[in-house]
Design a binder for these strands. Structure first.
Lengths: 250, 250
DNA sequence: ACAACATATATGCCTATCGAATCTAAGTCA
DNA sequence: TGACTTAGATTCGATAGGCATATATGTTGT
């Protein structure tokens, strides 16, 4: 991360044209949301392309400033609705990023959230302002470090500010939470097969899981129940469809 | 929590005398630290008595406002040093509390941290501005809810603002982290017996642990090594003293 | 010196759980 | 009809945790 002292203005012409930043005695507070989903065996995150400086042309997590009369959770939910048209999704506060130089304009704290959504709920059409980047997890380990994104064509999508750090922490949190809470179904439709749930877990963890152990463990939690229905049109024996019971809302 | 709209001033005389609060378009940002330690089989937290309104006479976590040129981590470390004389202790960001009405004066975000310290490091003398409250965990469960504090004499120490919520989340986080990382030794001196480490774990978790399993599990991590020394003056067979290896710094 | 006592440390056994292999069930497709 | 694919059940061995017990090593009292 570039070193820059607070109060030291960026005097490039583009900056001065785009912003009339003023120093305050309080930081601005933004909420940024990592909207994460699973698609075809990889993690994806929703991104917006920055049209203005700073970091013009690079990609950023959708976010905005907290209004003075709304809570942080409410701001995150509002931004989810405004930027992605999403309501009633799994949303959790992640961490607050507060390096004084993380935004070159003025001091901006970012209260980061992450959301887990079913890929089918996402508007991936061209009319949406959101793009989706494949999350590029470098080492198959703890992933405490920054995480980059790539387009479907494999091009790098450079992330603005410290958003690669936010994304890295989001992946780490989701992985950790998967070990002791069944949050995987937040990424799936209302009914799903055990295999698709395992696929989601494997994608998040970045490693394969034992099929039988996974099945036993999931059924032992008592959090999911068989619907009696089966998937159809699959070219082989169809699997039973399950749903999550009510109290699965963590 | 009392409902109060932002911008609606508290017009009680005491408030007006104590504060000349002004509304801004940005929230103030405070850092509050739950300094947690283990003492005689219970958890303790460092508290300061509020001398002024709001919440005059009740107890609060040590905290203060973030300066414009310091990071959040740095602010937390500074406050630890200023308020408790502590440096080089385990410190981790916990959560950011942002209900608009959490402070009756004006909007204040609290970026909460928790610190784990050896009780022997703490200045519990009368000259210190810090008092210590026993953490009163109501139900032996997940402890997601608010947690109160009591004095050594058993008197309630009512917590100001939403600090009971902060403390509850701190206990929950510490318990969760204990399951997969050996943070317990942050509460102990440089060398310690396995029994004292188990005592610390049991105190944090609020339940007893199997001695042999605990011993096997701890030794299997490879994170601690025998010193060859033994405790002394204990009135029974002295236990071997252990220390943590370098990389134990999580 | 010696016994009584308290706790540390080691060992063996039982059981629950996980991973792997194998087998059967139930669909599609040529 | 038979090959193929994946679902789901069963079995078995390895492993780790819980529990009981035995032994080691110190202090304290007489």
């Amino acid at each position: 991360m570039a070193e820059r002292k607070i109060g030291e203005r960026n005097n490039e012409p583009e900056f001065l044209a785009a912003y009339d930043a003023t120093e305050f005695d309080r930081p601005s507070v933004a909420v940024d949301v990592a909207i994460v989903t699973v698609m075809d065996g990889h993690l994806e995150v929703a991104l917006v392309e920055r049209a203005e400086h700073p970091a013009k042309g690079s990609w950023a997590l959708p976010g905005g400033f907290v209004q003075m009369d709304e809570s942080l959770d409410r701001a995150a939910n509002r931004l989810l609705a405004e930027k992605a048209g999403l309501t009633d999704v799994y949303l959790e506060q992640l961490y607050t990023f507060g390096e004084p130089t993380r935004d070159p304009r003025t001091r901006v704290l970012s209260v980061a959230y992450y959301a887990l959504v079913d890929h089918a709920q996402l508007d991936t059409g061209a009319e949406s302002s959101l793009s989706f980047g494949r999350i590029d997890v470098p080492w198959e380990g703890e992933t405490g470090g920054p995480v980059d994104a790539r387009s479907q064509q494999g091009q790098e999508m450079p992330l603005a500010f410290d958003h690669a750090d936010i994304l890295g922490m989001a992946v780490k949190r989701i992985r950790g939470k998967l070990d002791y809470t069944p949050i995987g179904f937040q990424l799936l439709a209302a009914t799903f097969t055990l295999r698709s749930l395992q696929d989601a877990h494997e994608t998040i963890l970045g490693r394969t899981l034992n099929k039988d152990s996974f099945r036993r463990r999931m059924l032992a939690t008592g959090l999911l129940e068989a619907t009696g229905e089966r998937e159809s049109e699959v070219g082989h024996r169809p699997a039973e469809l399950y749903r999550f019971t009510k109290r699965s809302a963590i």
